[in-house]
Computed example of a mutant assay.
Amino acid sequence: MKIALIGYGKMGKAIEAIAQGRGHEIVHRIDINSSHLLEKEQLQQADVAIEFTTPETAYHNILKCFAANVPVVCGTTGWLEKLPEVKAQCLEQHQAFLYASNFSVGVNIFFELNRRLAELMATQSDYRSSMVEIHHTQKKDAPSGTAITLAEQILEKQPAKTGWVNEATTDPTKLGIVSERVDPAPGTHIIQYDSPIDSITITHTAHSREGFAAGAVTAAEWLKDKKGIFSMKDVLSL
Rank of each mutant, 00 (worst) to 15 (best):
residue 162 T to D: 08
residue 125 S to C: 03
residue 132 V to D: 05
residue 149 T to D: 13
residue 160 A to Y: 15
residue 119 E to R: 10
residue 183 D to W: 11
residue 132 V to S: 06
residue 141 D to T: 14
residue 158 Q to I: 15
residue 113 L to I: 01
residue 164 W to S: 05
residue 109 I to E: 04
residue 109 I to W: 02
residue 131 M to E: 07
residue 157 K to L: 05
residue 159 P to N: 04
residue 195 S to Q: 10
residue 192 Q to N: 10
residue 138 Q to R: 04
residue 168 A to I: 06
residue 112 E to L: 14
residue 173 T to H: 13
residue 158 Q to D: 09
residue 170 T to L: 09
residue 189 H to Y: 15
residue 138 Q to Y: 08
residue 148 I to G: 02
residue 138 Q to D: 08
residue 133 E to L: 00
residue 193 Y to S: 08
residue 111 F to W: 11
residue 155 L to W: 06
residue 118 A to S: 14
residue 194 D to A: 12
residue 195 S to E: 04
residue 159 P to V: 04
residue 168 A to P: 00
residue 189 H to I: 07
residue 181 R to M: 14
residue 137 T to I: 08
residue 163 G to S: 12
residue 107 V to H: 11
residue 158 Q to L: 08
residue 178 V to C: 04
residue 115 R to M: 01
residue 163 G to K: 13
residue 162 T to V: 10
residue 169 T to M: 06
residue 110 F to W: 12
residue 176 G to M: 06
residue 195 S to T: 08
residue 185 A to G: 03
residue 156 E to W: 07
residue 166 N to M: 08
residue 134 I to V: 15
residue 120 L to I: 05
residue 156 E to T: 14
residue 127 Y to D: 01
residue 173 T to V: 03
residue 189 H to Q: 09
residue 130 S to Q: 12
residue 182 V to S: 11
residue 128 R to H: 13
residue 177 I to R: 12
residue 114 N to F: 00
residue 152 E to P: 02
residue 115 R to Y: 08
residue 142 A to W: 03
residue 151 A to V: 04
residue 116 R to Y: 10
residue 113 L to R: 09
residue 135 H to L: 14
residue 163 G to I: 10
residue 165 V to C: 12
residue 113 L to K: 12
